[in-house]
Design a binder for these strands. Structure first.
Lengths: 187, 187
DNA sequence: GTCTATAATTTGATAGAC
DNA sequence: GTCTATCAAATTATAGAC
């Protein structure tokens, strides 16, 4: 039997959804409270400040995402499989959740974020690049330099593809980019 | 002698800079007024609503960008040159202006935008894809289908690269992606 | 065109009762 | 833990004087 989500979880779920559709400056404690079915003051009981919500959402998002990615060295020799596995994680975020990557949104409005929130978005990107570099190094014979460049390229393309898909209202855009990235393995 | 910018232009310049750093929900009419040196009520004289500012900024941005791109059929046989020219336009936006692409920001927060503003961001993307398709079709022997996929890939990668660069505080990230994209021509 | 004044609403946050 | 009540500030926008 799945544990019922705590109020705290519901707040984070709602905040994540709102940030991913409207941005950090597009949600309010009152807006969250209304959805969760409590009062704004109760939201502040769990998270003293709005920035605390942003940080908690981003940390949870990053942990979940990297957990789902799993072991980057599990793709020995299967370069293409590694990339497909990576891209699939984002596809799920886009199609299942129906939203852009949290950190694509946060990264886009970096200048309008509390410093700590922007810092945690940055950590998401850094950890993703580290995962990709390891996965590429373990699955192909590219140099460390090439692995670095490929990692940056893949992450940038996937994040951009989610934004494009959302703005154009067309998920096939994401899949088109996913297909192109799989061919990086054919170098 | 360059014409002095009108007040209207100054408002749009300031709004564009603010949206590109903080997002649409991160700027206010008062914030703009303070920078321009007038009162908020005067901003509303030029643009009745905030949404009007967003639309005007996006339209102007799109026109300028496509003007700068020029003729997409000017690269006969020079596939690589076409891509480099396209990527350079974004590099200038990132390095000279010091900001992410306006529509990367707007696209990321689509769900939090007035409908018309989101619609104009979408138009930016559509016109960019159209330009790229023409440029790729005119400069190489790829099929229409391949040109479409390559166009989407290039646009997504460039937009994502700007966000990554900003969040990581590192412009070399953009240049790395730019280098990878130039190799698409080597297929 | 630019201002003052102001309205109506929203926002982030706190104090204190229950 | 959740509430009511409240605050101070900010926000979008309008009316009307100059």
């Amino acid at each position: 039997m799945a544990k019922a989500p705590t109020k705290r979880d519901e707040i984070l779920d709602t905040a994540e959804r709102m940030i991913r559709t409207m941005g950090y400056n597009g949600f309010s404690t009152r807006g969250i409270a209304k959805v969760v079915g409590i009062k704004a003051a109760s939201v502040h009981y769990y998270f003293p400040t709005k920035s605390d919500i942003g940080v908690a959402v981003t940390e949870r998002y990053t942990e979940r995402f990297l957990e789902r990615l799993g072991d980057p060295t599990a793709f020995e020799g299967a370069h293409k499989k590694a990339i497909e596995h990576y891209v699939d994680a984002f596809r799920d975020a886009l199609v299942q959740d129906g939203n852009v990557c949290l950190c694509a949104v946060l990264g886009a409005e970096t200048g309008g974020l509390p410093t700590e929130v922007g810092g945690h978005a940055r950590i998401f990107f850094e950890r993703n690049l580290a995962w990709l570099k390891k996965a590429l190094a373990a699955s192909s014979r590219v140099s460390a330099k090439e692995a670095q460049a490929q990692a940056i390229h893949i992450l940038a393309a996937v994040e951009g593809a989610m934004i494009l898909s959302t703005s154009l209202g067309n998920d096939t855009v994401f899949n088109s980019v996913a297909g192109s990235l799989a061919q990086i393995a054919d170098d």
